[in-house]
Design a protein around this nucleic acid. Sequence first.
DNA 1: TGTAAACAGCGTCACAAGTT
DNA 2: AACTTGTGACGCTGTTTACA
Length: 112
Amino acid sequence: MNRTRELSGQLSAATGDMPTYQIRAPTAALPQGVVMAASPGSLHSPQQLAEEATRKRELRLMKNREAAKECRRRKKEYVKCLESRVAVLEVQNKKLIEELETLKDICSPKTD
DNA sequence: TGTAAACAGCGTCACAAGTT
DNA sequence: AACTTGTGACGCTGTTTACA
């Protein structure tokens, strides 16, 4: 995959082009004039919207943290599994080679 | 014993694919 | 179309190892 990732996600925090879940600053620190994504109907004040966005972001980060842990756990397990399969196949291969050598010995015509 | 290099684990971001 | 999930990539930090 070709990912042209910015040096760091954090760097773009001030550019205003981030999805809501990436808003970095807590509510109180939001720069003046920053408006959350299209307000859904005017049910909430800007303050409430900011709090909601922060809450969503934190939830998302928490879930993703757990997802990443689980993903790594599964990957490790998978690699372990592959490694033990390799070990089994190596033993099997060794045995087959030995068996082949034995059979060759038996079948080959003897000189003297 | 200090230290640089290698390694492992973690949190986060970006993105594709799947779901609602 | 918006939301969710899984995962590769990146950067950071702490630990281990080899070496002067």
